[in-house]
Design a protein around this nucleic acid. Structure first.
Lengths: 345, 345
DNA sequence: CCCGAGTCTGACAACGTTGTCCAGGCTCTA
DNA sequence: TAGAGCCTGGACAACGTTGTCAGACTCGGG
């Protein structure tokens, strides 16, 4: 008869349960439960015996069974685009802190901007019966969440509103921020301003584009199609887009970058240019102040967004909150040099 | 009789169970289970009826109950220092990708470098019966994990070895990386080289310090105490430490920065200096190539570390892996300018 | 000495799912 | 047409915990 490897044997070795602890301590099952949960009504002597048995056996309460009985899991889910993105790290951390303050754990998943994967993740989290969900949506139809909402899963959307359902959403003033950033360039004398952004099906990208257009219109500047590059992702494509709008017959004198990744690539391209080109980016980036010139940005506070969303989530769980709302957080223009370069006409 | 708020009412509203689905579809409980899990032995007609009932009721399987029955949770835990740190974001993401490939979800927690909080988090994860744990330890005694290991919780430590228990560990060659980085500075003519690092109770910090000392000793350079600044955390204290070793009677001509956060602060300090000072940092930082001068670093590949650890974890779960091992990944010296500045004596 | 109140303890059901096992109806063959 | 074998469906127990409830024991007062 073949022996399974040792580790594997241990793996399937069963863990001690309250029943085992009770047997060893010579008490009833419920008494163990009482000790484990710090409930009153246990003599110090009994408690000592139980505690001893717990330590000796290395018992740990099985929270799955507990959840099954109690209904609450004390965990919340966070679905975002990519945890490796420097914007989401701090956001995730601040959500975790709020969760921790409420005794909850955080499960996160990256959707990679894929609507199908978003749904898959969200439903997996629901199957685990998370108490609440913070979702940075990739898709634009969230009707699949209706049964969950009805069942009372607290839900807050972040960065982009939910599609076809009525839910809380916390986001930055993408429109206003972009408008201010572009207006800043206009105020410094630019008229031919380029815009490089993500796919307009992404809400933030669309809003920032709208802000760009509004600023240009406010200043009475007609926008040439060749100044706008939409839906470019990946460094190579962004690079090509930037190079195209910098050359040609009607080259731009300034660029507004639609997100942090675009900004980084554009910085690289501009470093290779001979003539100075102004730049304002959406999202702050680390070390932006140490570059030559410093990078002017429209900053949003990721940690603040995360905290606001998480707090709202737990207020839903309290029952304090009833009506879904849209909360828009302000952005901040940080001038560091690159946005104040005059046009080199 | 007071009505609870609508949302709250929904919250405590019970979710449909397989029993409800079975009743609605007019079949037995187990038949529903079969359909949900794609098991064979159900007529297409019956399956259709069941599926209809599932959709109508918005049923989602309760994984807590499933786990209770099956033993496996298909989730793994990751405990790290701070998700907001740009080193851990990519690491976490790569662990998540491997988990996803194995159909598992990832729960993460930040220990904030606090041993007690680490233990608290790890035990909470074990109570949830995660199948495996990836731990970047804050503490140095992990005997509390013994019952878990015995029960078969797969465990891999990352970045620093476990204390007092025998477990897999995946880490960078901190000693060798630091030694090479410092030797690089020596090769460019420096003799008075400063070291700024984290508390030596942190394994990585101690190893990097050891690498610094080894490089200096190899070159026959005696090290002055005033050149070493250990256990400094927080930008202000790092700043003060850097300023001190740059002034005084025996100022350093080069600095080796022990981690990414120290590097960033030192860059700021150096930017304010009149004389040029060489710098090599441990960990790569974004945009390091665009600064003037570019920042020379000893880079470790966070994503690779995470992937290696996670893959090992799942091989433990397979039963493929039996004996704990120590896996050391190489670091890479990336020269960009700051490390090649000659001493300004 | 007895009774009531209060304290401590344990038996039992229930949470929602899956594994086991058996029943009944069908098809196929002799 | 009977018997064997297969296919489908369902009853039931079990997973480990917690809530309910009742029993046993202690103590103090009448």
């Amino acid at each position: 008869m073949p022996q399974p490897p040792l580790r594997s044997a241990a793996r399937y070795g069963t863990r001690p349960t309250m029943k085992d602890v009770a047997a060893r301590a010579g008490v009833g099952l419920k008494t163990v439960s009482r000790v484990v949960n710090g409930e009153p009504g246990v003599t110090p002597e009994t408690e000592r015996r139980v505690q001893e048995a717990i330590d000796a056996l290395g018992f740990r309460r099985n929270d799955s069974a507990r959840v099954l009985r109690k209904g609450r899991t004390a965990s919340i889910g966070l679905v975002l685009e990519d945890l490796a993105d420097p914007f989401y790290g701090p956001l995730s951390r601040s959500v975790e802190e709020v969760a921790r303050a409420h005794g909850a754990l955080l499960i996160n998943g990256s959707s990679a901007e894929d609507p199908e994967r978003e749904q898959e993740l969200v439903l997996a989290l629901c199957a685990r019966r998370v108490d609440g969900l913070v979702v940075i949506p990739a898709g634009d139809d969230h009707r699949y969440l209706e049964p969950e909402l009805k069942a009372g899963v607290a839900t807050v959307f972040v960065d982009r509103p939910a599609g076809h359902i009525d839910a809380d959403v916390v986001l930055s003033d993408n429109f206003g921020g972009a408008r201010d950033g572009v207006a800043h360039l206009i105020a410094h004398g630019h008229r031919r301003i380029g815009f490089i952004g993500d796919m307009p099906r992404i809400h933030t990208a669309a809003e920032r584009l709208r802000g760009y257009r509004a600023a240009m219109e406010d200043a009475g500047i007609p926008v040439a199609d060749s100044w706008m590059s939409l839906g470019v992702t990946g460094p190579e494509r962004v690079r090509r887009a930037a190079e195209e709008m910098l050359s040609g017959t009607d080259p731009v004198t300034a660029i507004f970058a639609g997100n942090n990744r675009v900004t980084v690539t554009v910085i690289r391209v501009l470093a290779e240019q001979t003539r100075p080109v102004a730049l304002v980016g959406f999202d702050d980036i680390e070390l932006a102040d140490l570059l030559q010139p410093g990078v002017t940005v429209v900053a949003q506070d990721a940690a603040d967004i995360g905290r606001t969303a998480a707090e709202r989530l737990f207020r839903q769980l309290d029952g304090t909150l009833v009506t879904p709302e849209r909360i828009e957080l302000p952005t901040r223009l940080i001038t560091r040099g690159s946005g104040e370069i005059p046009p080199a006409d």
